[in-house]
């Protein structure tokens, strides 16, 4: 199945990319095909940014990170998908749109909410896995309005917030002893 769109979940926001050039699945493991994903110049010709929806602050980022981690489609992601993917219901319905998503669970949640969207994940299609790897590698250059260091700063903040919530870490106490 060919892929039309890709979803990239970055610590700064969601990015939706359209696939301009379909490479066939047969040669996915060839060295030339692989190199195309590593080279920004060539990869930039394969995908095109449709929309970048940044998070409004750290708390929203954390909520979305938690949802993405659990495979739940957050309200924010829902609106982002709704406004950026072509409508597939109603009279104007075209063929189904195929969206490349990283995780199977999230793909399931998206399919449930949008009947017109088919999902391919990195597990079902090596092509999607490769494309998502490319997006991860070049995210900072492909997402508009970002500067170098933005993604890593967001990762640092989000990593701390996410992990602290996991272990119920508080800065005041060294540890919560159970006596």
């Amino acid at each position: 199945m060919s892929v039309d769109y890709l979803l990239h979940e970055s610590p700064v926001g969601f990015g939706i990319f359209a696939l301009k050039m379909q490479s066939d699945t047969v040669g996915a493991r060839l060295k030339e095909v692989q190199d195309a994903h590593t080279d920004l110049g060539r990869f930039g010709k394969m995908v095109q940014l449709v929309s970048f929806a940044p998070f409004q602050g750290a708390s929203q980022a954390l909520e979305n990170a938690n949802d993405v981690s659990e495979g739940i489609m957050s309200e924010y992601l829902r609106t982002v998908l709704e406004s950026n993917l072509p409508t597939t219901t109603g009279k104007k319905a075209k063929n189904k749109v195929v969206l490349g998503v990283g995780d199977r669970n999230l793909a399931g949640s998206i399919k449930q909410a949008f009947p017109g969207i088919e999902c391919e994940t990195g597990e079902t299609s090596e092509l999607v896995a490769d494309l998502l790897r490319g997006l991860r590698l070049h995210a900072e250059k492909l997402l508009k309005g970002l500067q170098t260091g933005d993604v890593s700063r967001a990762q640092l903040g989000l990593g701390h917030a996410y992990s602290r919530a996991k272990v119920k870490f508080s800065v005041q106490k060294n540890d919560n002893h159970i006596i």
Binding site: D103, V151, S163, V167
Partner: peptide, 22 residues
């Protein structure tokens, strides 16, 4: 500040895919 802590099971890299770059 160059260490990003991730408290998660390494068996499920997808769970922390938002926190890690290439």
């Amino acid at each position: 500040t160059n260490v990003i802590p991730i408290i998660e099971d390494a068996r499920h890299p997808l769970k922390y895919r938002m926190l890690v770059s290439m």
